[in-house]
Amino acid sequence: MKIRFYFIIGALIAILFASCKKDNYDAPEADFNGRIVYKGEPISVQYGQVNFELWQSGFGNYSAINVNVSQDGTYSAKLFNGDYKLVFSPNQGPFLWRKNAAGKQDTIAVKIDGSKTMDIEVMPYYMIRGATLTASAGKVNAFCKLEKIITNADAKDIENVSLYINKTQFVDGSNNIATQQISGAAIADLNNLNMSVTIPGITPTQNYVFARIGVKIAGVDDLIFTPVSKISF
């Protein structure tokens, strides 16, 4: 009796192990990463707010894989090998995505065979140039110029320009401890923007803040930012 009992346990274990091998796929292994760029310069955006879609046809359930773009314009995804189509849905990001002849968002074919690094070229409405962020006398002072990249019929106005500071490295409209805003109407010269914000008391005390400038373009959800800079004072 005892021998038979062990035999049954042994058989069960054998079956369980066998099934572990048979019906599981390997995890996706190929790394797909890169940056969102304009002429080689990365585009900084708000954390978790900009994403693109990867579509793969040939399998039953047709739906997109969303890939998030980080604050500094980089992205990364773990994928299976295969052929994908990459597309930004309309109004994602502070830039214009090219359209195909039918006026729909055009796709980029991406072949994943092992890991791959790829920069995605986009056309931003504006670029922030020559930004400097410095601290003095309990304030963060910022200077920047704005270059209007899209000047044809798709051009858009600036709704506002904001300087954000925060305790942590996540700095945007929702994550900040202080902000200074210039409305688009108040901007006289795109090549000479100055902003300044008082650093509020921080608990627990720290002698640095993170700051960056964001530009809100009228009718576009996502802002374009400068890279986050850590400012000691």
């Binding site: 707010q49 849905s89 109004n91 409209g173 929702s174 009718g219 959800d221």
Partner: peptide, 9 residues
């Protein structure tokens, strides 16, 4: 902890 954000979409 977060501010509501209603997007155009």
């Amino acid at each position: 902890t977060a501010a509501h954000r209603f997007r155009i979409g």
